[in-house]
């Protein structure tokens, strides 16, 4: 039964059962992630529907070009992950390493962009919560004019949503780093590549969350 890196736990009958169990478990976990984020989406929907004009105005302070860039970066990383699954299934592990490195790079770009966005906001007094005190002029926008009731709610939601999403990206980067070393050491084969598959699923979900965050926070 044992081919390269294959480990059948004693309590499973066969590999198919083990793989299916792991995948179902992962999907259940992803669903908990969806419901975790759903709370933020509900808060967003409630406050947006109460103060639509404030939310429309506050979102002007976010740079949609950076948001779009990050969307493209994340989509690309999802693509490379999907490709890496394709190649691990074919046993072409050198390509898998390259693709996962590209994924890691995309994730890093995403975080760097996020860093510039956050620091740009912080330097002009746009903080979540009590510290909210926008000032200064950026791109012809006078930030101090945005010190209006309920704008703090928008930015609280923005920071919490993107913050939690960012944490997920960081976790994903850690996972990819770990995967790359394992692929490079030849731990995976077409017969057993469960960690690659599961990490891929996780990463796609992080992408899907961003697909919704981008228009809700930056565009509309």
């Amino acid at each position: 039964m044992s081919s390269a890196g294959t480990t059948l736990k004693h309590y499973f009958v066969n590999h198919e059962q083990q793989f299916d169990a792991a995948k179902l478990g992962m999907w259940l976990f992803l669903v908990t992630e969806i419901l975790l984020f759903s709370g933020m989406f509900v808060a967003y929907a409630v406050y947006r529907s109460w103060h639509p004009e404030v939310f429309a105005q506050a979102s002007e302070l976010l740079d949609w070009r950076l948001g779009a860039l990050n969307t493209v970066v994340l989509l690309a990383s999802s693509f490379t992950v999907a490709l890496s699954i394709h190649f691990v299934q074919k046993g072409e592990n050198d390509k898998v390493v390259v693709l996962l490195l590209m994924t890691l790079l995309c994730a890093a770009i995403f975080m760097v962009v996020k860093y510039f966005e956050y620091s740009g906001k912080f330097s002009h007094g746009v903080f979540p919560g009590a510290g909210f005190e926008p000032h200064g002029i950026v791109d012809g926008k006078d930030y101090s004019k945005y010190d209006i009731p309920f704008a703090p709610q928008f930015f609280s939601i923005y920071f919490v949503m993107t913050g939690i999403h960012g944490v997920h990206v960081l976790v994903g980067m850690g996972l990819f780093g770990w995967l790359i070393t394992r692929v490079a050491r030849g731990h995976f084969s077409p017969q057993w590549y469960t960690p690659v598959e599961l990490t891929g699923l996780y990463w796609h979900l992080v992408d899907i969350i961003w697909i919704f965050l981008f228009p809700l926070l930056y565009l509309i």
Binding site: Y47, P128, G129, A130, P152, Q153, S156, I157, V160
Partner: peptide, 10 residues
């Protein structure tokens, strides 16, 4: 937690 820590106002 964040409401208590940072007064995020939700």
């Amino acid at each position: 937690f964040l409401e208590k820590l940072m007064q995020i106002g939700i």
